[in-house]
Design a protein around this nucleic acid. Sequence first.
DNA 1: GAGGACTGTTGACCAGTATCAAAGACCACG
DNA 2: CGTGGTCTTTGATACTGGTCAACAGTCCTC
Lengths: 285, 285
Amino acid sequence: MVLLLRRHSELLLTIVNDISAAEPDAGRSVSPYTDNTMASSPIQGKLLASGSLAAACSTCSLRELCVPGGIPVVELEKLDAMVATRRRVKRGETLFNVGDEFRALFAVRSGFFKTRITSSDGRDQITGFQIPGELLGFEGVATEQHGVDAIALEDSEVCILPYGELERIARDFQPLQHQLHRVMSREIMREHNVMLLLGTMKAEERVAAFLLNLSERYRHLGYAANEFILRMTRQEIGSYLGLKLETVSRAFSKFQEQGVIEAQGKKITLLDIEQLRKLVSSHKN
Amino acid sequence: MVLLLRRHSELLLTIVNDISAAEPDAGRSVSPYTDNTMASSPIQGKLLASGSLAAACSTCSLRELCVPGGIPVVELEKLDAMVATRRRVKRGETLFNVGDEFRALFAVRSGFFKTRITSSDGRDQITGFQIPGELLGFEGVATEQHGVDAIALEDSEVCILPYGELERIARDFQPLQHQLHRVMSREIMREHNVMLLLGTMKAEERVAAFLLNLSERYRHLGYAANEFILRMTRQEIGSYLGLKLETVSRAFSKFQEQGVIEAQGKKITLLDIEQLRKLVSSHKN
DNA sequence: GAGGACTGTTGACCAGTATCAAAGACCACG
DNA sequence: CGTGGTCTTTGATACTGGTCAACAGTCCTC
């Protein structure tokens, strides 16, 4: 399902897909409103201090989407030894801030995050939203300090992947090293697509692309693709898309008038995905 | 000199600096109009077929800026064995295209490149410009196909770093692995800053930030920081900055009227860098 | 369940940038 | 060294999205 940036892929699927998932994984079709992560993955080991929990890649329902993707299950136990702990982050709390020492990557296990960069003169830009199975913190490797703020938009849980150990294990276990590189490379491609969006698209095209992207990511997770709750505000969507909140709101209203989506506050239903795709590339209709 | 994204760094240096260089390296102050790469680095080994040349990291004047950065000279010979060849790319030719099989990273040895992404509906976005010492191709790791077109904007030369070998050597030699990760992470941070630029800045602020960024990168290379030749057209600058070429041209004209720069076609002189920095964050003056 | 604060919607107006157009400068090539 | 084509500049105009404002809805807390 890797459609990213193939020249002749239909419409703007390039922008819509930024997870190159394993298989469709049709068996796990659950509503995004219920969190099945906890239920389907028994907590192994005892609770650790202050909201930290034991983790285990080998039994994690998200393993195909996360760092272990493509690594044989038998080898995953090496990872389990390293990914010793999880951490809970309440809605509104930060997982890390700009300037914090970089020690680990984080894998979202449940919940929803935003990452934000703030310039010295006070501009904010949201650089991404992260849903379960996605990774946080790569921007910190270069300087050994985190380069963004990571903030939970709902009560969340992350696996802590201590970076030094990750590198050490990757050294002895080539597929992991390769997978790490692939995940970082995928992040670079994702950002290329955001640059394309910010650099070339009109407001409504951006909003349509944003909705399709979220939908696609939920689908990969095994959630419903055409009905979801936005965890972020209009202002946060706007920050991500380089628009003001009013413009985002107007785009939603217009799509709703056109019968393409239904938007009741944060609850979004995509009624006509094909039409939404056309809206992304409306500039030559 | 890593100023990237520290919260209280002055003005928008965050955007301006995207190379975390080693030391100021004041000894190598040369004009960008002369290419000293060839002269200072003897060509070792014989010429290979069709524009390919032998390469050697250990004697390369760019080694501190490139993959070998931070790696002890004695160890560099391992890299030399791998970076077997160089390749010449004439102005206007492509180094690789979207969809090409990804086999190697490329290090710019001399010349100037742009990387470009094209969406399925025909939009173009320039995702970066690369000058000597910078790397190309990381976006290809994820899918084993290149995700951008890389096009030489002047006659150029690159070192070919076969990716499989790079991973293999990195496995046996931890500092190289770490350096690879750092370089990819740096690319992610660079793109965060471009997103900030595209998402929050006005036209003139973008152009000012662009000029400061180029200047800073030339300075790190040991070239003059306040006088350089733009290798790209106004339209290419516009594509990178999410602007139309006329808007870029008007910004140049206005800066010139204000005495901040001098622009004679592609030759740019920065007359007042401090003022240029203020222009980047003019939104609250 | 009431009050307050945050979040979202909508309208009117305006600023900034795109678009269209035309002329001038520059460059590469024969 | 002249010529065609590309690149750049500048002006006039149109239009998108930003800004400001008022109000409505929603959620959270007490």
